Simulated assay, not measured.
Amino acid sequence: MNSCVLLAEIIQEPQLRYTADNLAVTEMLVQFQNSQKAEDAPATLKVVGWGNLATEIQQNYHQGDRVIIAGRLGMHTVERQEGFKEKRAELTVQQIQSLGGNFDLNSSGNISVAEPPPRQTSPVPTSPAVEIPSYESQRPVTTPATTTVGVVPPVTKPQPIAQPSKFEPTAYPPVTEEEPDPDDIPF
């Protein structure tokens, strides 16, 4: 199956249009770092979304947003005005997710992600006489687990048991316990 996941920045505002069958189509351009070399320019790619996803993209994603896009990569031949044909890559979106923070391409060409700033909340004034109930349950404190999984008990040789003299000797070999096989996993 043809599948592609891309970390990119939207460089052209998503454009929503409709087909003759009234199916929504959104097109936009994204750019991404195509190489490990910092001096290489970012690559651009046309991204297309269809149906409900197209309207979601047009409503929720805008130029400058950093996104993770998953979809199918395809090649299309385009007739140029100069009289020759050109092949272009196009990504058909199946999933899109906005990045919470900003990312920048550092000098080594790697992507560094910055966390978004914490939300500012205004303190709620409370009077000492009024108690505000908390609807959050107490979270249990975690304690380290002690487990014996994977620990093989030491094997001791069984001591022979003295047989009373009134028993007749048998021709069967004596029963001895074998060491447990560590690879034997009971199901």
Rank of each mutant, 00 (worst) to 15 (best):
T126C: 02
I111S: 08
T126Y: 06
T126G: 02
S137R: 00
P123T: 12
V130P: 00
V113F: 12
S134C: 07
P116W: 02
V124P: 02
Q120V: 03
P125S: 02
Q138V: 02
A114G: 06
E136I: 12
E131A: 09
A129V: 15
S127V: 02
V113Q: 07
I111L: 05
I111R: 11
S112Q: 15
E115M: 10
E115N: 10
S134H: 08
S122D: 03
V124F: 01
Y135I: 04
N110H: 11
P123A: 04
T121E: 03
V130Y: 08
S137D: 07
P128A: 04
A129T: 06
V124N: 01
R139I: 12
I132L: 02
R139Q: 09
P117L: 02
E115Q: 04
N110L: 14
I111H: 10
V130C: 06
P125G: 00
N110P: 00
S127Q: 12
S122G: 02
T121S: 12
T126W: 03
A114C: 10
S112C: 09
P118C: 07
S134E: 07
R139P: 00
S127W: 14
I132Q: 00
E131V: 09
E115Y: 14
S134K: 09
P128E: 05
S137L: 11
V124T: 10
V130E: 03
S134F: 01
I111G: 03
S112H: 15
T126V: 13
P116K: 14
V130K: 05
I132S: 05
S122W: 01
P133S: 04
S122I: 15
T121Y: 13
S127C: 02
P116H: 03
T121P: 00
P118I: 05
V124G: 01
P125Y: 08
P123W: 09
Q138L: 09
P116I: 10
P133R: 10
P116T: 11
V130G: 00
Y135Q: 14
S127H: 15
I132V: 14
T126N: 14
Q138A: 13
P128G: 04
